[in-house]
Write a protein that binds this DNA or RNA. Structure first.
Length: 299
DNA sequence: TATATCTCCTGCGGGC
DNA sequence: TGCCCGCAGGAGATAT
């Protein structure tokens, strides 16, 4: 599933291929892809044609093409993109192949100094979306409006560990729930939350307010560490649903310690990894290294 | 206001 | 073989 490392890999690929280019055509085939843009698919495509791609940026799992009206002029708006659970942004060069991908939802034609490319948005489970939006200042950084409520991610140079720790300690929710809350810390999904909690030796249902400041600081360090390691390996892939702009998979799934490893021995203590139900999904943890808090409901 | 749960969606795999 | 059901999960909407 696309979490921060996977989205960053896509961002880098798009930046390499389309930054500095001009959008010459756009097509939005799926109403669900445009569901956050009330005017609809045709209006969404119309918003993009003729715009220059000034840069490709990211915060957490959100990514956007900053758009300007002419080369070298400041970006005034953006195409905000969320990949959802299965979205892919594929860059194609050369002549179009016969037949469309069955899950093609939208596409762009971009003229760049290196030649013409096509960006195809393929999304099997349709949780992803595209949305044109104005750029605005949020917390000292220019982001598209739909990203303004999203917290900085741990790989952001301006990520404030102290402030995030203080925010977490004010809350009674379980710590995993907060790691998944994109308004507290962004970029973390189910996979990396489980991996960071395992590294920290903390059960995800531990109330955040019950954790010490040093423990929370260590946990955030593990979050940053696991995100950076995954990024270095091109992200995590379990199947063909997550790929970079060239359609290639990452390798970090081979480095996961708990996620998807129910029944396998913990790499640290040998106890069999357990799977529990949590927020209508699965949590993986070590029963010995990550002791469940007293009073937490058993699955 | 804070917190928890529901809902959207598609394809795969297991059970019968 | 074919049908049904559970599962995967990001994040906005809704409920408590």
């Amino acid at each position: 599933m696309p979490e921060l490392p996977e989205v960053e890999v896509v961002r880098r690929g798009l930046a390499a291929h389309v930054a500095g280019g001009r959008i010459t055509a756009a097509e939005v085939l799926s109403a669900r892809t445009a569901r956050r843009f009330e005017p609809g698919t045709a209006a969404l495509a119309h918003e993009l044609v003729g715009r220059e791609v000034a840069s490709v940026d990211r915060r957490g799992k959100y990514l956007w093409l900053a758009l300007s009206d002419a080369p070298g002029t400041p970006a005034t708006s953006a195409l905000a993109v969320h990949l959802g659970m299965s979205g892919q942004m594929l860059v194609r060069t050369g002549a179009p192949v016969a037949g469309r991908h069955p899950h093609l939802r939208a596409s762009l034609a971009v003229d760049t100094p290196a030649g013409a490319v096509r960006v195809e948005f393929v999304d099997q489970r349709t949780f992803g979306w595209w949305m044109p939006a104005p750029l605005l200042d949020a917390d000292g950084t220019v982001v598209p409006a739909p990203v303004a409520h999203i917290a900085r991610d741990p790989l952001d140079p301006l990520f404030d560990h102290t402030a995030v720790v203080a925010d977490m300690r004010r809350r009674r929710s379980g710590i995993k729930r907060l790691l998944l809350d994109q308004t507290v810390v962004s970029g973390v999904g189910n996979i990396y939350a489980d991996e960071a909690l395992w590294r920290a030796g903390i059960h995800g249902e531990r109330p955040a307010e019950a954790l010490s400041r040093p423990a929370l600081r260590r946990l955030l360090g593990h979050v940053r560490e696991v995100l950076a390691e995954s990024l270095a390996q091109g992200g995590t892939s379990f199947d063909a649903l997550y790929v970079n702009v060239n359609g290639e998979s990452g390798y970090f799934s081979r480095s996961l310690n708990v996620y998807g490893r129910e029944g396998e021995p913990c790499a640290r203590c040998g106890a069999p990894i357990r799977r529990e139900r949590f927020m209508n999904r699965s949590s993986y943890s070590c029963p010995r290294c990550q002791v469940r808090p007293r009073g937490a409901a058993h699955p």
